Amino acid sequence: MSDLFYDAAPNATRVAPPLPTPRQYPAKPQQVYLFGTCVVDLFFPEAGLDAIRLLEREGLRVHFPQEQTCCGQPAYTSGYTEEARKVARAQLALFANDWPVVVPSGSCAGMLRHHYPELFKDEPETLAQVKALAERTFELAEFLLHVCQVELQDQGEPVQVALHTSCSARREMNTHLHGRALLAQLQRVERVEHDHESECCGFGGTFSVRMPDISGAMVRDKTRALQDSGAAQVISADCGCLMNINGSLELQDSPLRGQHLASFLWQRTGGRP
């Protein structure tokens, strides 16, 4: 949903890029950046900390530039290109070293990897830097799976979970495939299928603000399917979706709740309870 928006701004239509092609993964580095995302920073800080813990456990030194802010996606998908470019330019200066940039959000990772080059296509003096950043940007689950090649050892009790991935993360970063593969390594975790799995939860960034009735209907469909699945917990790699889904579940007085994949993996493999 977040890849195609119509707004009051002129020429606001944004069309999703082509499906991602298979990429060549580098050897595991010694140092990485974490791009924490604004939603993680403000609403799910434990997910960012658990992402760092997972990476550090793999022997990596994690750098977190304190000045980082939003990736610029809300402005970009609403048609405010110049404002998005200003936000993106500020991030470019913070990730200057040639280290991978790991992002605990498929939609934000997709913004850096696929949309930053579009933002700066008319600035040849900046485009090379932008493309280099895009090539070394990885969503967290993707990085753990294909670069770190983690082998997870489950230490939790048997549980059934449902996996939700944001619609843009599915299209741009294959986050659903990476999340499924990591959960499959946990011997006592059963991932249950649920209806509406590939459908948007209704958040869609500014969409949920501009069209609250439609957004509300969509998240009710999503949460109904999650509750009907029989899962005891919802897992997602995108905190915007988690915020929307958890809010709807709370309004329904449902005991079901969602948790970021990073926190779930950390807890299941020996981290904090």
Rank of each mutant, 00 (worst) to 15 (best):
H164Q: 15
H196T: 08
L265H: 03
R61M: 12
A232R: 15
C239G: 15
D98A: 10
A237D: 15
C108D: 06
E193D: 10
S248Y: 02
E83L: 13
L54Q: 02
H176N: 11
F143Y: 11
R224V: 10
V32I: 10
H194T: 11
S229D: 04
Y116Q: 03
S166F: 09
S198K: 11
T13W: 09
Q160L: 08
Q68K: 01
D50H: 00
A262E: 09
R14A: 03
M211Q: 13
S236C: 15
C71M: 07
V87E: 01
V130I: 02
A128H: 11
T77W: 12
E193P: 00
G205R: 02
H194L: 13
K28Q: 12
E157V: 09
R188F: 07
T81K: 14
Y6P: 00
P26Q: 04
G270R: 12
D253S: 10
P45N: 05
P26C: 06
D221R: 15
M211C: 08
V150K: 05
V32T: 02
Y33K: 02
P100V: 13
A169Q: 06
R53E: 12
L183V: 14
G205N: 03
A128N: 06
A184P: 05
V161I: 14
Q129F: 02
L34G: 01
P212W: 07
L152Q: 06
C108K: 00
G36Y: 09
H114E: 15
P65C: 09
A16W: 07
Q259W: 03
E197C: 00
A162L: 10
M1P: 14
Q24N: 09
S248K: 07
D122W: 05
R53D: 09
A51E: 04
Y25V: 00
T175G: 04
K222V: 01
A90M: 07
E190L: 01
V62G: 01
S229W: 05
M211R: 13
A9T: 13
Q185E: 08
M218Y: 14
A88G: 11
F5K: 00
F138N: 03
V39R: 03
G258T: 09
K222R: 07
V234P: 08
F95L: 03
T126E: 13
K28R: 15
E123W: 11
Q259F: 05
P20I: 06
T206I: 15
I52Y: 00
A88M: 07
Q185I: 14
Q233K: 10
L94P: 05
R210N: 13
F64Y: 12
T206C: 03
